[in-house]
């Protein structure tokens, strides 16, 4: 069973629909037992980090996510879900987050007014190392982004892919062992995004 973690952080319909398009019936759930029992876990999310952490805490999901990540379950963070995997977000006057990956989440500070915040749209992902989730996906393919904050892992070897926006190159895909995480939305990135999701659904991480 594939679990899509529901923690009241936005709309999970499109993630579920994308899994369905790949022939996989994923379950949208906030039940700790179901999440712990899942063979794969998708941790999406849209919205603000502060409210998301409050929900995770009040729903007793913080330790559940930590356990899932530690026991080797293939785990995919998407957008806000990815940001929350790091240690600290600048959002909402500073929000301590899960800390499953080392690093912070700062806000874009463009110097050129033409660089809008949020970044909305399709941008290139530069592949900096090989990863099973990128199998069959060409370097510099475009994926769909919607975000004002970005992942800044504190160890460079976590980075799988980078994207250029608002004067910086940020880590748009990161991970280690059984954890992979994207700032972009594979479920909304057309055929290429589906390819990445399909790779996740068939991924056997090396421990």
């Amino acid at each position: 069973m594939i679990a899509i973690v529901d923690y009241k952080a936005g709309n999970l319909t499109s993630v579920q629909l994308a899994c369905r398009a790949l022939g996989c019936e994923a379950v949208v759930t906030s039940d700790p037992q179901q999440i712990l029992a899942a063979e794969r876990v998708i941790f999406p999310g849209v919205g603000a980090a502060g409210a998301a952490m409050q929900h995770l805490t009040s729903m007793n999901l913080v330790s559940v996510l930590r356990e899932v990540a530690n026991k080797g379950t293939p785990f995919l963070g998407i957008c806000l879900g990815t940001q929350i995997l790091l240690e600290f977000s600048e959002e909402d006057d500073g929000t301590p987050t899960l800390g499953l990956l080392p690093g912070r989440v700062p806000r874009f500070q463009p110097t050129d007014r033409r660089d809008k915040v949020p970044q909305i749209g399709w941008n290139q992902v530069h592949q900096v190392r090989k990863h099973p989730l990128l199998e069959g996906i060409e370097d510099d393919s475009e994926f769909y982004f919607v975000h004002s904050y970005y992942p800044a892992p504190s160890t460079p070897d976590l980075t799988i892919g980078t994207t250029d926006y608002a004067d910086i190159t940020f880590s748009c895909m990161l991970g280690r062992a059984n954890i992979a995480a994207t700032q972009f939305h594979p479920e909304k990135s057309g055929r290429i995004g589906l390819k990445l999701l399909n790779n996740f659904l068939h991924w056997t991480p090396s421990r």
Binding site: K188, S189, L194
Partner: peptide
């Protein structure tokens, strides 16, 4: 529409 397409 949501079920049929994979773009926003």
């Amino acid at each position: 529409v949501a079920a049929a397409i994979r773009i926003p």
